[in-house]
Amino acid sequence: MKTLAYHRPKSLDEVFDLMASSEDAAYIAGGTDLLVSGGASPPTLISLRSVPELMGVDETRIGAATPVADVARHPGLAASHPVLVAAARRLGSEQIRNVATVGGNLCRAAPCADLAPPLLVLEARAEIVGRGGTREVPIDEFFAGPGETVLAPGEVLAAVRLDPPRTGAQGRFLKKGRVRMDLAIASVALLVEAEGGRCRRIRIAAGSVAPTPLRLQPVEALLEGAELTDEILEEAAALAAATVRPITDVRSTESYRRRIVGVYVKRGVAQALAGGEA
């Protein structure tokens, strides 16, 4: 099926009018996923590239239409939320990052979405708009399954909202791909606050190891308040491996994914404690 109509609305009102008047329409943003699916493109596409309400990026709000490259190269975000910038830099190639959008990465709801684990550990919120107005949903509740989100038909992800950075929090993003631009075999983001080797607060999330990007709360509970010794990190790695629910597919196997998530939790905490770049 070929696309028969391609609309480029210039406002959210126009977006909703077009969606309401079409039975077979789908939204398109950067299109770097949608256009790969070959012959099966929807007959009507509504482009979200030229909608001002979805644009703009700063340290508190990232418009959904923001290209991933604009996050990867944002000096303010690099200072405030380096774990997100680190993940943006590892998404695809420069060609993909220049076009793929933050909103598209989340709304496709792939388990491997590179921006999801860092946004989960930052406890970001999804700003969702529809005809009826705006609502906010914690990113943790945004993903409903592989390719599924909590967006109601016609609703649009307008932006991702970020809290101010927490003092002393050290973030890390680790990603395993066959080659550098691949989709993740597994990925881990974490945000650690530690004092004198003791973990005060930690947030951990993993990608490509469950039907949705996943917060690893049992591992967080194990580590919070604990002395971050080699022994407890071994225990955390084993618990992370047991907590995730990966599958075997063309990219990797269930057992390898469990193992790499454990290794990345351990390695990520150690790197975060050592300081330096996310």
């Binding site: 391609y6 770097t32 790969v36 482009s47 590239r49 060609q95 220049n98 076009v99």
Partner: peptide, 12 residues
């Protein structure tokens, strides 16, 4: 900016 022309809708 570099883009893949194979993934860029011409109308854009």
């Amino acid at each position: 900016r570099v883009v893949n022309a194979c993934l860029y809708p011409a109308l854009e």
